[in-house]
Design a protein around this nucleic acid. Structure first.
Lengths: 362, 362
DNA sequence: GTTCTTCGTGGAACTAGTTTCATAACGGCG
DNA sequence: CGCCGTTATGAAACTAGTTCCACGAAGAAC
């Protein structure tokens, strides 16, 4: 049916298709160099005990054949770079990049590669992804960001952790609190409560007593913790924080604007607003403008995230700067076993700009 | 020296070290199910021709052993997800995320994984990275963003392309112009010249004749193309564009501020400034404020990149919105061979906001 | 009732490196 | 000069799946 020659032709000339017939392999190189595959392997594997002349012969043969070590085959034996996976809901958004950059720096420094995947909040996609990462023998998985705070999620993440542990991969939560029902899963987070608290401390210091809050109230971990930070701080200062002062707003400028408009339209509107995120704070700027309120004279605003450019708003937004890069670094270090797997809670810094001032009528 | 039992113990209990002894492999599963490895492979490989009963037996055995397909071994035979690599100078910065998101969406949709690596502008690191990606048999490499525009770079990128082609991987330039000396390397870019041109058209329409430019002038591809867009548009409108109107500024707010300060301190200062990037534009806002110039009354400003929040500055920044996501999508499609490998030049959109107005003294 | 398919399955040969174990050669030391 | 340790190397057995080829059995067509 096909002569050897034809077969040869097919092997090398095969037009397309998945017929990935990489040019030369280690055995070819070894043969051409007149050594055994074992010796050739030693040359590329970095073993010291290869005679210089032999090494030269192998290297020459490799160059002549255009040989490239097959990392996939190498990976099977545990050599070569491993992968660290960065699993996040969405790449768009300010918080992602710095966190990923931190993770990447550690991964790279340790000879690993960083895989980034988004779930888009889709459970199926998420679980397929974990399955794939398991199969690909990812060394570590960073599960990044806020998620639903319900029992179903807790079960899900616990099962991911277990599944990954089966293949010696670790799972680290990143930028979100630990899961109470699965305390063995390490979390590297920053102190949302302290961040919001710092904002409120400053507002109280300035003399504010009616301080509103805009943000999601339920369902997402980050949202809940930040709201709790508001309530806790208000309590600490013995200030009232009735439900009317807390309006629900998703993390977007438009949602923030709408919620702020409502909150600021009340007769006894607050003199200051703490926003769950800078996006919401920016929406609050818009609403305040639309209502003819001056910032910070008529309304003080505190944001959270310290998104770029936000300092150049008029006035610059007073906000909380989370240590995103550092979170990425620490999470990856823990995931790779470079430091003990203990929950980490990093401190954000408070960035005082122009959007906060004493209330007008004191 | 070691009895079979001890060996067994070592095999399974091996404390740490690289002794990645994953629990069960395909042969174990096959043995337990009483079938051949070939049949077991068919079950997991998705081949249709396996008897339902057999399939069930294999699946049961796999479950009992906690078997997880080894994607690394699978990858060797060309099956399983491939990887698309996203190579970028730095992850920090606004342009990166949307581009990566576009790339990821296409990669994921086609069953691939996205690897992200930064070079930090380090040649050694970059070339090591390409070598690694070659070894790992990445299917496609997206080389993202601006780079030095010198002959050395052209040589370098051409050699990357060749090296990658050796292992059937494609290289696509992404968000930067083609390399003239290596025309076989596909580029997916957006029209920087047209973007800057649209800004100048608008300024001219408003009556401006003295229009300055702030940005890097030489050395980086994106910078050169944008500056060229300025010069070309000015020429088209028969407007003077002497060197004095063009000040050098790196892509940062501080650099922009410094350069803008200089430019605006001239006696015959321009009535409008086109900034290479929004960062520089924000710096220009600062400089204008410091000099007591009102925007847009005393000075019109046009940015480039449409970074988030920039619309909420006072006034909102008129700028150019590049189709980052789409660039990522198209580049990945081309890199994966889903569309013909032809250079793509996408059109940015012009976003008219409040930082542009007629000059005061016309 | 025989031939022709088709289905299900196993054996063995692939994908490509790494590593253990054994052996040979060589130099140093007694 | 012989013994011992080191170095260099190869054969073969690993890492784990996939797939071609062949064979038997069952059902379908003639």
């Amino acid at each position: 049916m096909s002569t050897p020659d034809e077969a040869q032709a097919i092997r090398h000339g095969g037009s397309r298709g998945p017929a990935r017939v990489s040019s030369a392999n280690l055995r070819d190189v070894a043969a051409r160099a007149g050594v055994s595959p074992a010796t050739a392997s030693r040359v590329f594997g970095g073993s010291r005990s290869v005679h210089v002349d032999t090494r030269a012969k192998v290297l020459t043969a490799a160059a002549e054949l255009g040989y490239v070590v097959n990392g996939l085959a190498r990976a099977m034996t545990g050599r070569g770079p491993g992968t660290v996976a960065f699993v996040v809901r969405s790449m768009i958004g300010p918080t992602f990049a710095a966190l990923a950059a931190g993770a990447e720096s550690v991964a790279t420094a340790n000879g690993h590669l960083l895989l980034i995947s988004t779930t888009e909040g889709d459970r199926q996609r998420e679980s397929d992804l974990i399955a794939t990462l398991r199969e690909q023998r990812a060394r570590a998985v960073l599960y990044v960001g806020s998620t639903e705070s319900d029992a179903e999620f807790d079960t899900r993440i616990a099962s991911y952790a277990k599944n990954l542990a089966d293949v010696d991969a670790s799972l680290v939560l990143c930028g979100r609190p630990p899961v109470t029902t699965a305390p063995t899963i390490t979390s590297v987070d920053y102190d949302h409560r302290a961040g919001v608290g710092a904002g409120i401390d400053e507002l109280v210091r300035l003399g504010h007593t009616r301080i509103g809050y805009l943000g999601e109230g339920k369902g997402m971990t980050t949202a809940e913790v930040r709201l709790d930070g508001y309530r806790t701080a208000m309590k600490r200062h013995h200030l009232p924080h009735p439900k009317r002062l807390v309006h629900d707003a998703a993390n977007s400028e438009d949602a923030g604007q709408a919620a702020a408009h409502e909150l600021l339209s009340m007769a006894d509107r607050p003199t200051a607003i703490v926003a769950m995120t800078d996006n919401i704070a920016v929406g609050t700027y818009r609403a305040a403008r639309a209502l003819g309120l001056r910032i910070p004279d008529d309304l003080s605003i505190v944001g959270f995230d310290d998104v770029p450019i936000v300092g150049d708003l008029t006035p610059g937004l007073t906000t909380v700067h989370p240590p995103f890069f550092e979170v990425g670094v620490r999470a990856t270090r823990i995931a790779l076993g470079l430091e003990p797997a203990e929950n980490v809670l990093l401190q954000p810094s408070f960035v005082l700009r122009g959007s906060t001032a004493p209330p007008r009528r004191m």
